[in-house]
Amino acid sequence: MILELVIRLFFGIVTLLLSLIPKIELPQNFLSFMGDASYLISFASYFLPIPTILACIAVIFVVDNIKLLMSIFNWIISKIPTIS
């Protein structure tokens, strides 16, 4: 009974937090913008290879996220009183 109460409380809090996230509505001309953007990227692909650019962006994204996770981990470790 107590475990069920704790689980219901947890799921209630999660549901409350998820309900606070607003709905995202795209503007009417979003699809035409994507068509225009892909048209411009097709011209850029003559000079820069798109798969290479995507690989570079992916590596930057992964490295930044690893740095963030490491800083969070180090912050948590620094809060433990016996570890300096």
Rank of each mutant, 00 (worst) to 15 (best):
M1P: 07
I2K: 15
I2T: 08
I2P: 05
I2Q: 09
L3V: 15
L3E: 12
E4L: 11
V6D: 00
R8V: 01
R8Q: 15
F10T: 12
F10G: 00
G12V: 03
I13L: 14
V14Q: 09
L16F: 15
L17G: 04
L18I: 07
S19F: 15
L20H: 04
I21A: 09
P22H: 14
P22W: 12
K23I: 04
I24Y: 13
I24T: 15
I24K: 14
I24W: 12
I24R: 10
L26C: 03
P27H: 11
Q28E: 15
Q28A: 13
N29L: 01
N29V: 08
N29G: 04
F30N: 06
L31G: 02
S32W: 11
S32R: 10
F33L: 13
F33Y: 13
M34Y: 07
M34Q: 14
G35A: 08
G35R: 13
D36R: 10
A37P: 02
S38D: 07
S38G: 03
S38A: 10
S38E: 13
Y39M: 09
L40Y: 10
L40P: 01
I41H: 08
S42F: 06
F43T: 10
F43I: 12
F43W: 11
A44W: 03
A44D: 02
A44G: 05
S45D: 12
S45V: 08
S45A: 11
Y46L: 14
Y46D: 15
Y46Q: 13
Y46K: 13
Y46T: 09
F47Y: 11
F47E: 14
L48R: 02
L48E: 04
P49D: 10
P49M: 02
I50Y: 11
I50R: 11
I50C: 08
P51E: 01
T52F: 09
T52A: 10
I53A: 14
I53Q: 04
I53N: 04
L54Q: 05
A55V: 00
A55P: 00
C56N: 10
C56Q: 12
C56I: 06
I57F: 05
I57P: 00
I57S: 06
I57T: 03
A58P: 03
A58D: 06
V59W: 14
V59I: 15
I60M: 07
I60F: 09
I60D: 01
F61S: 08
F61A: 12
V63K: 04
D64A: 07
D64C: 08
N65Y: 01
N65P: 02
N65Q: 07
N65L: 09
I66P: 01
K67E: 01
L68N: 00
L68R: 07
L69P: 01
M70A: 13
S71D: 03
S71R: 05
I72E: 11
F73K: 05
I76P: 03
I77G: 03
I77R: 10
I77L: 15
K79A: 04
I80C: 06
I80G: 03
P81H: 02
T82S: 07
T82A: 07
I83Y: 00
I83P: 00
S84K: 07
S84E: 14
